[in-house]
Design a protein around this nucleic acid. Structure first.
Lengths: 136, 136
DNA sequence: CTTGACCTTCCAGTTGCTGGAAGGTCCAGA
DNA sequence: TCTGGACCTTCCAGCAACTGGAAGGTCAAG
């Protein structure tokens, strides 16, 4: 199977598959006599796994860890659960940060007349004291 | 005022101030005879503005737009409000995306025993059908 | 035998910084 | 006067996770 076919079946663009190979997330593909990468269904499955994990927001390094666990028959579900929980915590941290931004902005937008005049509480707020930068 | 002082007063690291200058977000600073950048309180204010806008999640290009409006006495608050609302929409899009990830992960974590055995619904799910990739 | 859709590699750009090297400057204290 | 450390300067590299594009090889159909 050529890379285009794998891309179509896994949902991972050909370009990205090559990139994953380059950074070592997936092993180098076999090559045909024409030097084309040659894949089987196993590789498609691996890439689907990667695609799904990425779509859940796991970073590439975390995906590498999950992939290792996936392939390890002696893994414990405890370890998998730990990674997942850790990732949920990270997502929640981001949500909290975004919610705070939204709240501040919503309040400012609420107070802004949004007319032809230059007076604007949004700009007035931005011109005020330094705000706390996001942690992390 | 040297760049270190400005950094302390504005909350923007010296390194970042130079970077902002390089990309044109702020105008090139005056230079002293020793070639050190020389700033006044106006520059500190500008950098505070930038710092606050960035902390609300505005991208550098958006900050450039806000800064332009800030300096334009003939601006309309309508325009500022429009930018802010647009940014809120973007933030909300991200929140929705993160919430979806959290929901999926929470459900999987809930179903995972998290014990010494290898059986794991989290990995089973990842090994399933391709999921929709995030839009944008 | 040509055309077009594949495939290959490599380089550059994206976003927003941050770290570090190599070197110049300034000021306080011995 | 010298020295040391804390400044400042520029430039180069790297992070994350790709994506776009150029230049060129391959393959199958008509």
């Amino acid at each position: 199977m050529n890379i285009g076919e794998v891309a179509a079946r896994s949902g991972v663009p050909a370009k990205t598959i090559r990139y994953y190979e380059e950074i070592g997330l997936i092993p180098p593909a076999d090559r045909g006599s024409n030097n084309y990468r040659d894949y089987g269904t196993r590789e498609v499955e691996t890439l689907r796994f990667v695609q799904r994990a990425r779509s859940l927001g796991f970073g590439v390094k975390e995906v590498a860890g999950l992939l290792e666990l996936y392939r390890d028959r002696r893994r414990t579900s405890r370890e998998v659960k730990r990674l997942a929980k850790q990732h949920i915590a990270e997502i929640e941290r981001k949500i909290v940060e975004l919610e705070a931004m939204r709240a501040t902005l919503a309040e400012l937008v609420e107070r802004c007349h949004g007319d032809h005049r230059p007076d604007c509480p949004i700009l007035a707020d931005l011109a005020g004291e330094p705000r706390q930068t996001r942690t992390g």
